[in-house]
């Protein structure tokens, strides 16, 4: 169920790398855990991010979750559709519910992330 070409963080962000850019979002597990998303706070384009820096927050009715940058780089685009339709994150977390695109500064941190199968195992561990 989790795309094979994605990598995942322990905080439930996913990242899909394409050359020197990466797309970032939150996992299906994360969106289910949050419930109906009502608001997404996104960083400005041009923001420089370090690994694990807070890039924004996602709010549901009764919870707030911070989104952390899975890699170092610079924000080149944010998903403007989320402003009017935050529910996209619930409907399609791995596709049209993406959060931002970044130009990677270096790929060092990416190796530490989990592949889809490892992430699924990690989730199983959480449920116990």
């Amino acid at each position: 169920m989790y795309p094979q070409d994605f990598k995942f963080t322990k905080d439930h962000e996913w990242v899909k790398v394409d050359g020197d850019t990466a797309v970032v979002g939150i996992s299906d597990f994360a969106q289910k855990h949050l419930g109906d998303v009502v608001f997404v706070e996104l960083p400005a384009v041009g923001t420089k991010l370090a690994v694990h820096q807070t890039i924004g927050t996602i709010e549901s009715v009764k919870a707030v979750s911070e989104v952390f940058s899975p890699a170092a780089g610079e924000v080149v685009e944010t998903n403007s559709a989320l402003a009017d339709a935050p529910e996209t994150i619930n409907q399609d977390p791995h596709g049209t519910g993406w959060i931002l695109k970044m130009k990677l500064a270096d790929r060092g941190g990416l190796d530490a992330l989990m592949a889809a199968t490892d992430y699924e195992k990690y989730l199983e561990g959480l449920e116990h």
Partner: peptide, 9 residues
């Protein structure tokens, strides 16, 4: 909008 408030944040 209670996510602004202390009982959640």
């Amino acid at each position: 909008l209670s996510t602004r408030e202390q009982h959640i944040r």
